[in-house]
Amino acid sequence: MLNSFRLLALAALSLPVLAQSPTYHVGRAATPADIAARDITVGPDGTGLPAGEGTAAEGAVVYANRCEECHGPEGRGADQGGFIGKPADLLGDSPKKTVGSYWPYAAPLWGYVDRAMPFDRPGELTRDQVYSVVAYILHLNGLIGENDKLNAETLPKIQMPNRDGFVPDPRPDTP
C-alpha cells in the first residue's frame, strides 16, 4: 500500500528517468570491475571457477600442513569430520555424511574450501593450493588419480557418487 502510494507520488512529480535506481535514485552503478572483485560464486556446473591448477600429489602437502590438524590424517576425521565415504554410508542407524558419500557436486567443494577453509584462516590458500587440496580429497575418495590435473575445465566434469541423492521437499508430510 504505502510503497505503491509512494511510487505514485514520485511518478506524479515526474522525476527524470535516471540511469540507476529509477524510482528512488539511490545506490551507485556496479561496474564490471566492482562485480569481478566481489563475486566469488562457483556454480554446480563450474561457472565462476577461476584459472589455476593442482594435483592430489601436490594437495597432500597442503593437506598435511593446513588441514590435518582438524580433519585428521588422510581425510579420516579427527576433531572435525572426515571426507571419505560412499553413498551406502548414508543408510542405517548412524549415517555418515562426507564429501564422498553425500556431496552432490564437485565444483562447489572448490568454492567452499576457497571461502571457508582452513577454518582458522580462510582465504589463506592460493587458487592452485585450493585446486590441489580439493584434488587430494577427491583422490582419497577414488574419484581421480593422484596426478590428474584439476582445473576449471576438469573439476566440473567429475561425477560425484551422490549426484542423484537429493529430492524436493514434499512437506507437509504428516496427516
Partner: peptide, 24 residues
Amino acid sequence: QPMMTRDETSKYTDLLPDGKARQF
C-alpha cells in the same frame, strides 16, 4: 539456478531412511 553451496547440500538437507535427502 541454486549455487549448491555447502550449507544447502552437505548441511541443512534432511536424510531419509532410503539414503535420499530432502533438499531446500
